[in-house]
């Protein structure tokens, strides 16, 4: 191909074919989703575990109340971006006295009821000694 013809053919060809555009868009969407997942502010969900099994994932942006095993047993309240145990039938009541938690990695454990509430995400610390 002579140099002049090559310039001409490049000028005439479309820079992208339709398939390429779809692939690029797909890549951008997946990249966007990945970045969103990675960058999403952590500590916005409370996970509730009973005997080590995840039973609820509660968004802290949504005020609500959930009962584990009946209302008289164990009630968890999400209010104004924080979560707390509003009622527990356990004798010790540590879980109730623990108050509200909202930061990533924070947790409330009710040992008698074998329930743990944990705020999702990696906190600045690996664990808390208390």
């Amino acid at each position: 191909m002579k140099p002049l013809e090559r310039v001409k053919s490049i000028k005439n060809s479309k820079p992208f074919k339709i398939g390429d555009i779809i692939v690029v868009v797909l890549v951008l969407v997946i990249l966007g989703l990945t970045v969103w997942t990675a960058m999403r502010p952590r500590g916005t969900y409370a996970e509730v575990y009973e005997e080590g099994r995840l039973i609820y994932t509660l968004s802290l942006d949504e005020n609500r109340e959930v009962s584990v095993g009946g209302e008289e047993h164990f009630v968890i309240t999400v209010k104004d971006g924080a979560v707390f145990v509003s009622h527990s039938d356990c004798p010790e009541q540590y879980c109730v006295y623990a108050g509200a938690i909202s930061s990533a990695g924070s947790m409330i454990a009710c040992v008698p009821n074998k329930i743990v509430i944990r705020i999702t995400g990696e906190g600045a610390v690996k664990g808390i000694t208390s």
Binding site: A124, K126, I128, T129, S130
Partner: peptide, 24 residues
């Protein structure tokens, strides 16, 4: 139960807040 032991090198550990409860 709040007694922590690190595995595989140093880990960053927080100390529970004894008074103000807004910060964990």
């Amino acid at each position: 139960g709040g007694n922590i032991f690190a595995v595989g090198g140093a880990q960053n550990i927080g100390i529970g807040n004894p008074r103000t409860s807004s910060l964990p």
